[in-house]
Design a binder for these strands. Structure first.
Length: 288
DNA sequence: ACGACGCCTCCATTTACGTCA
DNA sequence: TCTGACGTAAATGGAGGCGTC
């Protein structure tokens, strides 16, 4: 949906700065996360239902028209060239991945709750490898080390994220096992991935709103000008000769003829309450 | 009914690490 | 080659919701 389309559908426009996180968050709800979403993103792009066109007032309230464009997909940049390989990744697939796990050597693991008995086995093996890497670093390193995921690991995580942006515990366990990572690491990756997605979406929404705002500002300017012209026209009319109801007036912006009453409202924002007045929101000429 | 507790997700922030001028 | 700035992403800590006891 183009911006012009969006802004000329005859729907009430309301400017709510923010992103339409509700839609995306619906999709992130999982079986395990059945809570109502507690916090909305600070700025919410409010998606108002279309108003009945008969009630339409060109109020020029800034905002999005009845429908926000479907979320532009900012989730996936592609999974890299090794994507196919990733799906043949065995838990111990590459020396790299082993290294990656080993490199995660800062022993402090806070969330033991992640660890089922299976995980504890993994954890145990990780401790072994951690020990090895600690020896490499003379064992005195208390500072946390940061794991860098291998391409294969990232690709598989991406693919999994593509399928569902949140994981239930079983999926997490399975993925962790497959990637030879701890469930907590998988969880953290998904968390960060969601955050990145959201950030990108916010940027996209922000751009969209900027454009919408510009369009509406222009529209407002145009309507103000039109009003001025109509006022001038009215002044030019002889005082006691009201224009006949059937008088045609011309849309100043596109010079299309329209059968309207010449009544000029006091407010530039209420002019369209006259049933047949040129309405920039229902009349496509607004975009012309 | 109410509070304590554990588990979970989300969010903001910190920080390790890689890249580049 | 070294170094500092900067960006990216893994990890942390806290808040708050929900279920159970």
């Amino acid at each position: 949906m183009g911006l012009d389309d969006a802004c000329h559908k005859g729907l009430k426009l309301v400017l709510g700065l923010g992103l339409s996180s509700t839609a995306s968050e619906e999709t992130t709800t999982t079986a395990t996360d059945h809570r109502p979403k507690k916090k909305q993103y600070p700025t919410c792009l409010t998606n108002f239902p279309a108003t009945n066109s008969s009630n339409l007032e060109p109020s020029l309230t800034l905002g999005l028209c009845g429908e926000i464009p479907k979320k532009m997909d900012v989730n996936f940049k592609g999974c890299g060239d090794n994507y196919q390989e990733a799906f043949h990744l065995s838990p111990q697939a590459s020396p790299q991945s082993t290294t990656a796990v080993s490199s995660f050597s800062s022993g402090r693991v806070k969330r033991e709750r992640d660890l089922s008995s299976d995980d504890q086995e993994v954890e145990a093996s990780e401790r072994v490898s951690s020990k090895i890497s600690d020896e490499d670093e003379d064992g005195s390193n208390a500072a946390r080390k940061k794991l860098r995921l291998t391409k294969q690991q990232s690709a598989l995580l991406e693919e999994s994220f593509k399928q569902h942006s949140t994981l239930n515990p079983k999926q997490k366990q399975a993925l962790a096992r497959q990637l030879n990572l701890r469930p907590r690491q998988v969880e953290v990756w998904f968390q960060n991935r969601r955050a990145r997605t959201k950030l990108k979406q916010t940027e996209v929404d922000c751009e969209f709103l900027k454009k919408c705002c510009e369009t509406l500002t222009d529209e407002n300017r145009r309507l103000q000008k039109e009003l001025q012209e109509l006022k001038a026209l009215k002044l030019a009319q002889p005082l006691y000769m009201p224009m006949p109801a059937a008088t045609l007036t011309m849309c100043p912006s596109c010079e299309r003829m329209g059968g309207v009453n010449d009544s000029v409202s006091k407010s530039p924002f209420s002019v369209a309450s006259k049933p047949h007045f040129y309405n920039p929101f229902t009349n496509p000429s607004a975009a012309c």
